[in-house]
Amino acid sequence: MQNSHSGVNQLGGVFVNGRPLPDSTRQKIVELAHSGARPCDISRILQVSNGCVSKILGRYYETGSIRPRAIGGSKPRVATPEVVSKIAQYKRECPSIFAWEIRDRLLSEGVCTNDNIPSVSSINRVLRNLASEKQQMGADGMYDKLRMLNGQTGSWGTRPGWYPGTSVPGQPTQDGCQQQEGGGENTNSISSNGEDSDEAQMRLQLKRKLQRNRTSFTQEQIEALEKEFERTHYPDVFARERLAAKIDLPEARIQVWFSNRRAKWRREEKLRNQRRQASNTPSHIPISSSFSTSVYQPIPQPTTPVSSFTSGSMLGRTDTALTNTYSALPPMPSFTMANNLPMQPPVPSQTSSYSCMLPTSPSVNGRSYDTYTPPHMQTHMNSQPMGTSGTTSTGLISPGVSVPVQVPGSEPDMSQYWPRLQ
């Protein structure tokens, strides 16, 4: 039975679970980093996980050691009161100082060594604690504590007292930064006198190289990059290397530039699409467009005044059976039934097929058609009795279509119309 579990990581490298990497692998990681390889490249070359490479390099940059820390136990506290007071002093002298600059000053002034120097995250935590204590304490208590930490007896009751030896409130920041720059020169002199001055200088240079600022491109470089971006948004590694040799930039910087440029292009394309949609959409909808001609068919113009009344309900007709019959029939052209047409008796099958359309009241044959006459024609229609054979009435077949029909004066039988409509 094995005491430890061995495995293979996602890159194909072998590791022992819970145990640190061998010293030979750690040394190779540092050597590759000094030669300029990126952590992701080191991870692929040595088949070590990216997190492990970053952790080893980060500890090497901070402490200069590649040895693993002790497994188990607690780390001794490195942010001692003396170190905290120095950090507060540096922050007062130059409020814009960075944590890694404070760390360098602690090393250069001999406050800490490589073994007990606090990390950048520890210094940031100390600065946050100082800021929170400043908010919790009152103004007087804060000034007393700062005077105690600074070891001075001057008056701290006013704002300019934060910067000793100065009279203009805006000047101390520059003086403090100048003092810090002077301390940086002392850093070089002190570290050069040490035993491991060369190694420390190499480590600091490598650290500065990794902690780079934003790349500033010249106009020629920007023009070359934009020209390549117009050709393709995704250049391959050969195109990037050719462009890197042409404009004297690292291939990694060119790759990052193209990634950022593609993101910018997507944002601009989104804005262009929004403007295009806004320009195509009308600002207001016309009133006429809300009524579609496919839904509402136009009603033909009436030929006679009587045809303006298109349904039985508008003429005072309360018989719903006839109203439904007229509205359900398709529109037909106007025609006239003459008196000489043969009077065919209704076929029983045809009569039964339209039995649902006729009223059940037996008085329908005896009703006159003056009910369908509009009010303004009552006088004219009353002067001509319906009993004469020459009287013409208008029957409504569908809305908007008038059918003048000659009705025999002897017997106005409704059943004569249905064979004609089939």
Rank of each mutant, 00 (worst) to 15 (best):
Glu109Gly: 11
Arg92Asn: 10
Val126Ile: 15
Arg103Lys: 13
Asp104Tyr: 09
Cys112Pro: 05
Pro95Tyr: 11
Ser96Cys: 06
Ser35Gly: 12
Ser4Arg: 14
Glu93Val: 07
Val78Ala: 04
Arg103Thr: 02
Pro76Val: 08
Pro81Phe: 06
Glu109Gln: 12
Tyr60Ser: 02
Arg69Ser: 04
Pro81Ser: 07
Ala33Gln: 07
Pro68Phe: 01
Gly51His: 00
Asn114Thr: 13
Arg125Pro: 05
Arg26Tyr: 01
Ala79Trp: 00
Ser65Pro: 05
Ile117Gln: 15
Val84Arg: 09
Gln2Lys: 15
Ala131Val: 10
Val53Arg: 00
Arg92Ile: 09
Val48Trp: 02
Gly51Leu: 02
Gly51Ala: 12
Arg38His: 04
Leu146Gln: 14
Ile102Leu: 12
Asp144Ala: 10
Leu130Lys: 14
Asn124His: 10
Cys52Ser: 09
Leu46Met: 06
Phe98Trp: 09
Leu106Ser: 00
Asp41Trp: 04
Lys28Pro: 02
Ile66Pro: 04
Cys112Glu: 00
Asn116Gln: 08
Asp115Tyr: 11
Arg26Thr: 01
Glu133Asp: 11
Ile71His: 15
Ile29His: 04
Gln27Asp: 05
Asn150Leu: 10
Asn150Met: 06
Gly13Ser: 03
Asn17Asp: 04
Thr113Pro: 12
Asn124Val: 02
Ala79Ile: 10
Leu127Gln: 08
Pro95Ser: 10
Thr113Gln: 14
Ile97Ser: 14
Pro76Met: 03
Ile66Trp: 15
Pro118His: 00
Arg26Gln: 02
Thr113Gly: 14
Cys94His: 13
Met137Leu: 13
Ile87Gly: 01
Cys112Leu: 06
Gln47Pro: 00
Arg147His: 14
Pro39Asp: 05
Val48Leu: 05
Glu101Tyr: 07
Asn150Ser: 11
Cys52Ala: 14
Ser35Pro: 01
Gln47Leu: 14
His5Thr: 11
Pro20Met: 02
Pro39Gln: 15
Leu146Arg: 14
Arg77Trp: 01
Arg69Val: 05
Tyr143Thr: 13
Ala37Asn: 15
Ile29Phe: 02
Arg59Asn: 05
Leu130Ser: 13
Phe15Pro: 02
Phe15Lys: 03
Gly36Glu: 03
Lys55Ser: 06
Arg19Ala: 04
Lys28Trp: 05
Val8Ala: 01
Pro22Ser: 05
Ser49Cys: 07
Lys91Ala: 04
Val126Gly: 04
Ser54Met: 03
Asp41Lys: 06
Lys75Ala: 05
Pro118Glu: 00
Gly141Asn: 09
Pro68Ile: 00
Asp41Ile: 06
Thr63Leu: 03
Ala70Glu: 06
Lys55Asn: 03
Ile42Thr: 03
Gly58Ile: 15
Trp100Glu: 04
Val120Phe: 03
Gln135Cys: 09
Ala131Glu: 08
Thr113Cys: 13
Gln89Met: 10
Gly72Lys: 06
Gln47His: 04
Arg38Lys: 07
Val84Met: 06
Ile56His: 05
Arg147Asp: 11
Arg26Phe: 00
Ile87Trp: 02
Arg77Lys: 10
Gly110Ser: 09
Cys112Ala: 06
Gln27Tyr: 13
Gly18Thr: 01
His5Trp: 08
Arg103Val: 06
Lys28Asp: 06
Ser122Thr: 15
Ser43His: 02
Tyr60Val: 00
Phe15Val: 02
Lys145Glu: 11
Gly12Ser: 00
Ser85Ile: 08
Ala131Asp: 07
Asn114Glu: 12
Gly7Cys: 15
Arg128Gln: 06
Arg103Asp: 02
Asp41Pro: 00
Gln89Ile: 13
Tyr90Ala: 09
Glu82Pro: 14
Trp100Leu: 06
Gly64Pro: 03
Ala139Gln: 15
Arg44Leu: 04
Gly110Tyr: 09
Tyr61Asp: 06
Asn124Glu: 03
Met142Cys: 13
Gly72Cys: 06
Gly138Arg: 12
Pro118Lys: 02
Gln136Ser: 13
Asp144Cys: 09
Val48Asn: 00
Lys75Ser: 04
Asn129Met: 07
Leu107Pro: 07
Gly138Thr: 14
Pro76Gly: 00
His34Trp: 10
Ile123Lys: 02
Val83Ser: 04
Ala37Thr: 11
Cys52Thr: 10
Leu106Cys: 07
Gly72Met: 06
Ala88Lys: 00
Thr63Ile: 02
Met142His: 14
Ala88Ile: 09
Ser6Val: 15
Leu127Ala: 09
Ala37Val: 12
Asn116Cys: 09
Glu101Ser: 08
Gly72Ile: 02
Arg67Phe: 07
Pro76Glu: 01
Ser122Met: 02
Glu62His: 10
Leu11Pro: 00
Ser65Ala: 06
Arg67Met: 08
Val53Gln: 05
Lys28Met: 10
Ser4Leu: 11
Asn17Cys: 14
Ala79Gln: 04
Pro95Cys: 10
Gln136Val: 10
Gly18Met: 01
Asp115Leu: 13
Asp144Tyr: 09
Asp23Ile: 14
Lys86Tyr: 12
Arg44Gln: 06
Pro68Ala: 09
Leu11Ala: 06
His34Pro: 02
Ile45Lys: 13
Gln89Tyr: 11
Leu57Ile: 07
Leu130Thr: 13
Gln47Glu: 01
Leu57Phe: 03
Val8Met: 10
Asn9Ile: 01
Glu133Thr: 11
Pro76Gln: 02
Ser96Lys: 13
Asp115Ile: 13
Gly7Ala: 14
Leu149Ala: 15
Asn124Ala: 02
Ser6Lys: 15
Asn124Met: 06
Ala33Asp: 05
Pro68Gln: 02
Arg147Ala: 12
Lys28Cys: 08
Asn50Arg: 12
Ser122Tyr: 01
Ala37Leu: 13
Gln47Tyr: 06
Asn116Val: 09
Ser85Gly: 12
Leu149Asn: 09
Ala33Thr: 07
